[in-house]
């Protein structure tokens, strides 16, 4: 379809709308080869030409890997297509005359900056709390010194593929970030280099997760369904296991 007409219901917040509200826009001339963000570009260009305030939305790589884009489209974080970021969603999945509702990630730990842009510093702070292996530059031994079983390396990768977009939190009815934390804990726990500080890592990351005000996981699995990289909730189970073992099975009193 070369020329779709859409009704867009977009959350605006900041500037003219300090409390935030939905504003309706009509957009025609939408081509089905456009990406969703290109469709918003077209709308913004029109708004700018009318000297109106364009819609703020975050985006960068537009190839599904940087994790910047963060739109809830018709109730789905990143839109209705699974394992697809909003930037990789194309308009061919919508129909002429559709009404599309666009909202930001909604979580207390992701305060809104403007319109559809949220602040995800809380994710950085969780990684800073322990999402790393303590190795200084130059300390490494030869890369092949420790073999890692192919499947295990692959499982570690399945967790490491997280792009830190926050769709898991946006999707979770509890606004929990367990999939994000689980992915990092699980990635690093599955490589021998990361096992050394696995106990303190999981303790510190969970403490930070809780301090940031994320909700508690109740195994709904909406996170996995909306994760653009399809990261499985089995990594949350590994996180739980690690947490229990590192508390009850470790002689350390405080981490």
């Amino acid at each position: 379809m070369e020329n779709m007409k859409l009704k867009l219901r977009i959350w605006r917040q900041g500037g003219k709308f300090p409390q935030g509200k939905f504003v309706d826009y009509e957009l025609d001339g939408v081509n089905d080869h456009m990406s969703f963000l290109e469709m918003l570009d077209v709308l913004n260009e029109k708004l700018i030409n009318k000297k109106e305030d364009p819609i703020a939305f975050e985006h960068d790589c537009r190839e599904g890997i940087c994790g910047t884009c963060s739109l809830v489209i018709n109730g789905y974080p990143h839109g209705p297509m699974q394992q697809t970021t909003a930037c990789q969603l194309h308009m061919r999945h919508f129909r002429d005359g559709d009404t599309i509702t666009i909202e930001p990630w909604r979580s207390r730990a992701f305060p809104i900056v403007k319109d559809l842009v949220v602040n995800r510093d809380s994710f950085d702070r969780i990684i800073q709390a322990g999402g790393f292996i303590s190795v200084d530059t130059g300390q490494a031994q030869d890369g092949n010194a420790i073999p890692i079983e192919k499947d295990q390396a692959s499982h570690a990768f399945d967790a490491a593929t997280c792009i830190g977009c926050g769709a898991c939190v946006a999707a979770c009815p509890n606004a929990s970030a367990m999939l994000f934390v689980g992915a990092k804990v699980s990635h690093l726990a599955q490589v021998p280099q990361g096992k050394v500080e696995a106990d303190s890592r999981v303790q510190r990351m969970i403490a930070q997760h809780d301090a940031e005000g994320f909700g508690r996981c109740s195994n709904i699995t909406a996170c996995e369904a909306e994760c653009p990289k399809g990261i499985s909730v089995e990594h949350i189970a590994r996180l739980n296991r690690q947490y229990i073992a590192s508390t009850l099975g470790s002689e350390k009193v405080a981490n």
Partner: peptide
């Protein structure tokens, strides 16, 4: 968990799950 969502709730939210 209600608090974690924040004051403004979603206007449209589809709860799709992966096995849940």
């Amino acid at each position: 968990n209600r608090k974690a969502r924040g004051e403004q709730r979603y206007a449209v939210k589809v709860d799709r799950t992966a096995g849940g």
